[in-house]
Structures are given as structure tokens and as C-alpha cells.
């Protein structure tokens, strides 16, 4: 994956320098690696002078190994609120919260709504794979109906387990949100498109737009009890059918003025 040493001339493709040599810290075949990589690339492109971040206890806590800034592991479900506190103390910082669907939809749902309503200029990133991956794949409130997991052995049944929460669509309804998008990074075309959506999200936050929400649809072959190839098929045929990628709410400065001044850049 690194640029060949012997090749003279301009490097056109490199691994982000903050990635550790071993690669990403997640399970083999996990979808988190692809979108965390483009997040780091876009952080480096946006190049904020200050970056504060928080990542939930669970799979995403390993974000601390790769984020090029100050990051804390927050309590499960509390990353958005924790990063709001960090942002209040460091108003010139870009602020990013990383939460999985268990942390955001199950444990801390009210807090992401309050954050959206506040309009505070923070970026909330939801890594959504429909399961508690870190603990073995139990379903979360984001899981599609019919999803089989150790706690829904016969498939998720709305009568027993309730129905999935369309969080991104609900957040888009809140006036405080400046930008809401959904991406997937399970194949190169989606990575390409996802990175451009992410770039718009980062640019909005750098411009001081307000609350930015990005849902990253992710496979979890370990938690889903599938091979990576099977998980991508399931992801395309089941998950993305109900959750198409794209910009759900684009930032329009004319109707949603920036809540703060543009964030300073490094250097």
C-alpha cells in the first residue's frame, strides 16, 4: 500500500502518515478501516489548527490510535456530549465525536438530538453496522428488521425488538443541523463518493456551519457471522436498500448561517 521506493517522480497515492504500520486496529474485514482512513485524509486536507475528538468505548475507541489530534475515549454513549464539552473549552478547535450505533442509538440517543438542536459546530460521526460488534454482535436499534444476531436468533422482530430508528433522517428535521449525510465505503466507487460527501461535511464544519452529522454504513463480518465477501453482499442487498447513501441535508449558508467564525488552519 505504500509508495514504491524506487519510483521516481510525484507520489500520487500514499497511506495517511498517521496510520500505524500494522494497518487499522479493527478485525480483519471490518468496514471501519476504510471510512476511518478517508476521515483522516479529509482531516489532513481540512488541516484545522486544533482538533479535539472523543470516541465511545466499544470498537470505535481504537480511533485514538489513528486520529491526528487530541482524542479521548468517552463513556459509552457520551462521545457527542463529551466533545461538546471539549469544544466549549476550545472553541477554535474542530470537534469530532465517533460513536457506533450501539452508543449513539441505544445508549446516548437523547444526547445526539440535544447536540443537533444546539446547533453547536461539532461533527458527529456514526459508524453504523447494526450490531454491538465489540461484544459479539448483539443487535442494536439500528439493525434492520429480520437481522439475525445472538439476541435476535430468529431475526429482528418489530413486535419483540422494536423497529429501526432512522436517525439521520430524524436529525435532518432538526433546524440546528447544518449538514446530514450518509456514506458507505464497502467498494471503491462508494469510497470515492463517500469521501466527497465527507469533504463537504468537513468543509462545512471548518466554515463554522454548525452541527454536522455523518452516518458511515459499515459491514461487521465478525459480528454478523459472515465472511467479508458475504457481509458486503448482505450490506448491499439488505442494509443499503433501506439506507441509501448521499447527502440528506446539504449546508446552505443562505438559510442556515454559520454559527461561528471559520476555524483556523494549521500553519
Amino acid at each position: 500500500m505504500t509508495t514504491a521506493e524506487a519510483t521516481p517522480g510525484k507520489a500520487v497515492f500514499e497511506r495517511p502518515h498517521v496510520f500505524v504500520e500494522e494497518g487499522t486496529p479493527w478485525c480483519q474485514g471490518c468496514g471501519y478501516g476504510a471510512w476511518s482512513r478517508i476521515i483522516i485524509e479529509e482531516i489532513e486536507r481540512a488541516n484545522p489548527a486544533k482538533l479535539v475528538a472523543a470516541a465511545d468505548i466499544a470498537c470505535l475507541e481504537y480511533m485514538h490510535e489513528i486520529i491526528p489530534g487530541d482524542i479521548t475515549i468517552a463513556l459509552h454513549g457520551r462521545s457527542v456530549s463529551t466533545v461538546r464539552g471539549m469544544k466549549m473549552a476550545q472553541p477554535e478547535a474542530m470537534a469530532i465525536a465517533f460513536q457506533g450505533d450501539g452508543g449513539m442509538l441505544n445508549e446516548g440517543l437523547n444526547e445526539v438530538f440535544h447536540a443537533a438542536a444546539s446547533g453547536q459546530n461539532v461533527i458527529a460521526i456514526l459508524g453504523n453496522n447494526g450490531v454491538f460488534g465489540d461484544t459479539g454482535g448483539q443487535y442494536t436499534l439500528a439493525a434492520p428488521l429480520g437481522h439475525k444476531s445472538p439476541t435476535t436468533p430468529n431475526g429482528r422482530d418489530a413486535k419483540i425488538n422494536g423497529s429501526p430508528i432512522p436517525l439521520a433522517e430524524m436529525l435532518a428535521m432538526i433546524p440546528g443541523t447544518a449538514f446530514v449525510g450518509r456514506i458507505s465505503t464497502h467498494d471503491p466507487a462508494y469510497v470515492y463518493r463517500g469521501q466527497r460527501i465527507l469533504r463537504k461535511a468537513m468543509e462545512a464544519s471548518m466554515a463554522g456551519a454548525g452541527f454536522v452529522f455523518l452516518e458511515c454504513m459499515t459491514t461487521c463480518p465478525t459480528g454478523w457471522r459472515m465472511t467479508p465477501v458475504e457481509s458486503i453482499k448482505y450490506h448491499e442487498e439488505v442494509i443499503l436498500k433501506e439506507k441509501p447513501v448521499g447527502i440528506i441535508k446539504d449546508w446552505d449558508p443562505a438559510t442556515h448561517p454559520a454559527v461561528e467564525a471559520a476555524l483556523p488552519k494549521l500553519g
Partner: peptide, 18 residues
């Protein structure tokens, strides 16, 4: 907004030097 968020603000705000 709520005590739970108050707890998170305590941590985040103080951790960032406030």
C-alpha cells in the same frame, strides 16, 4: 440539557483545560 450531559461536559470541558 440533562444531568447525563452535565457529566459528559464536566469530563470534556475539564479535559480540554476549562
Amino acid at each position: 440539557e440533562s444531568e447525563l450531559e452535565g457529566g459528559a461536559y464536566l469530563y470534556g470541558f475539564a479535559a480540554s483545560g476549562g
